[in-house]
Design a protein around this nucleic acid. Sequence first.
DNA 1: GTCTATAGATTGATAGAC
DNA 2: GTCTATCAATCTATAGAC
Lengths: 212, 212
Amino acid sequence: MSISDTKEKILDAAEYLFARRGFHNTSLRAITSRAGVNLAAVNYHFGSKDALLEAVFQRRLVPLNRIRRDNLEAVRETARREGRRPAVDEALRAFIEPTLAFRKSGTGAEDFITLVARSMSDPEDTVRDVFIRHIAPLFHLLFETLCEALPELTPDTVFWRLQFVIGAMGHVICMTGKNYKYALPAGVTPVDDVESLTALLIDFAATGLERP
Amino acid sequence: MSISDTKEKILDAAEYLFARRGFHNTSLRAITSRAGVNLAAVNYHFGSKDALLEAVFQRRLVPLNRIRRDNLEAVRETARREGRRPAVDEALRAFIEPTLAFRKSGTGAEDFITLVARSMSDPEDTVRDVFIRHIAPLFHLLFETLCEALPELTPDTVFWRLQFVIGAMGHVICMTGKNYKYALPAGVTPVDDVESLTALLIDFAATGLERP
DNA sequence: GTCTATAGATTGATAGAC
DNA sequence: GTCTATCAATCTATAGAC
């Protein structure tokens, strides 16, 4: 078995279990058992459990962040070329759409995005720090773009409204995750359709952000 | 030392530590050590660690839910008497204001509301189930009130927009918690003022909910 | 690179003296 | 009700054979 094969198996199993049970509540035994590899393989290939978490984030978040960054910069560039300010809904879409799209990827990425959303409010510093470290530069770019799009608002207002949007997105990601149970009120049909939910969120968020 | 004294001490310590480190990551030894009581006291007074979590929720969530329920029913009653529909921002305020007010209570309730917000997306079923069990009836009442306030929207739309609001509120509760670190962008001043943040959230949420 | 075996520490829970 | 002492299970990490 080649090196990368075992590493990939471990990453897949860790992603699956971290998302469903949490980092601290997932043992290396559970990971290696699910991956079908030896217990000692994690420490051989990654060094420690913490380093494994970092590797799980790295594998998917680096490509995802590249997409989100390219999208955001395209929105700014287009607006600049057309001599107008970037549109709020375009900026939000550049960030939100590729994020929620993980849900319909059909690969283990579905689990990954749940892991990221949960990491945002994880009580453990270890986990939350990994999240913040990976997301901070991108969040900053989104914030700047929205400030350009909404020059009549104070940066403070834009900042907190953006936090509301981040919170809303994180929550629906958790809710639509595999092991989240909630009782739908009578008359409400479950929305399995990622595109509809994305559109609903972007409309809601843009309307709230643009309030005078 | 009386019975209730020891029980209260344990509840205070558990609340503090569960909020900051998470349920699974907090040992009974850490709790009893902080409370200044014997290790065996938790199992004597509460039966198990799970039962202790339930008691921590009970102590503060029962009174809080009574306030939120009374507020919501007052909003409906006033609207009915005046022959109009309930206002969206009034309904939101009835729910959000007493929740965020925990932050400035000066007691351990500050920690408690962080614990609740984090429980919403906790990876462990044990924790999330306690949250859902306590919040479900109240969420249902808020949902119904908003459906009355927004009869031109489908229940599906109201449901998901309300979820966005819940997510936004939970996220700012986590963010303003004691041990949450984040880098403020240049030009943004930290908002310590709970009232301002509450108003900002209600305005944002009402605007998004009322979108046609 | 993969495996077994185990060290070393921590956990929730309980038995039994006082 | 409170305490000490301890059990049995779990955990991460590593040493060393193959």
